[in-house]
Amino acid sequence: MKTSRYAHIFFLAPALITLLVFFFLPVLAALLMSATDFDVYALGNFGRARFLFLENYRRALEDPLFWKALFNTFYFVMVGGPLTILVSLAAAVALNAKILRFRKFFRLAFFLPVVTTLVAVAVVWRYLYHPRYGMINYLLSGFGIEPIDWLGDPTWAMPALILLAVWKNFGYNMLIFLAGLQAIPETLYESARIDGANWWQQQFYITIPQLAPTSIFVTIITIIGYFQLFAEPFVMTQGGPLNATLSIVLYLYQQGFRWWQMGYASSIAFILFFILIVLGLVQELVRRRINRGGAV
């Protein structure tokens, strides 16, 4: 190939330089900062910061509020994640059913919440959840259910956020599942039917194994996304009541941009990073194991 030897540098430079300046170097800077007590005192005078090495991380482990935020985030991820994935899988299977008519309409309706602005829908749901005047309690009262103080009761606040998240996000995974379903060769089902398999057996022995790679992908993006829970509690509960909806990112935001504890906030960010890396490794292991097992 006869071409200028350095042309690629010209094309790569803008992206790589901005990524370097605004992403990779800041990661290093954050790592450094997480080893100091950089804060509002140090903002104008670096002499007022100390190098603490791992002290911030130790402090986080002793900070009950950090554990609370970690617990809440795991709660959100571990309940909200599977719920979202199950709903999206069910929706995808339903959308893929041969008897379904108005397919495009349903697909669009299910997908609408995904594209809308999270802050705006959080505002809307805040009112839908109002214990006295909200639509949700009104509808539930039709089934004889007593009014629930969704956002004001520490027990219900997190389930309320999870419900909103499932509603908002399931459409995205649904489309990915749908693509996966459509990629399954029809002949597999035909031969299964010839062997006398009923609908449930077909789902269990064909659909689920065939969808395994898609499922891993969907699981990992859902979990990564859910770990970064922020706008919902920021808009709807400010982390309350009783810190029941304080998430890691919200805590990080409060420590960093409200109290200017930038060193401490950086260490929280790295703990989040570390958790995501562990999850990434787990997914890689699972993927390899499935690949090794090959198609059943």
């Binding site: 109002h130 214990p131 006295r132 005047y133 103080d149 956002l151 004001g152 009761d153 009541p241």
Partner: peptide
């Protein structure tokens, strides 16, 4: 009351 949500 413990919560504001007692009132509109």
């Amino acid at each position: 009351p413990r919560t504001m949500t007692e009132f509109a």
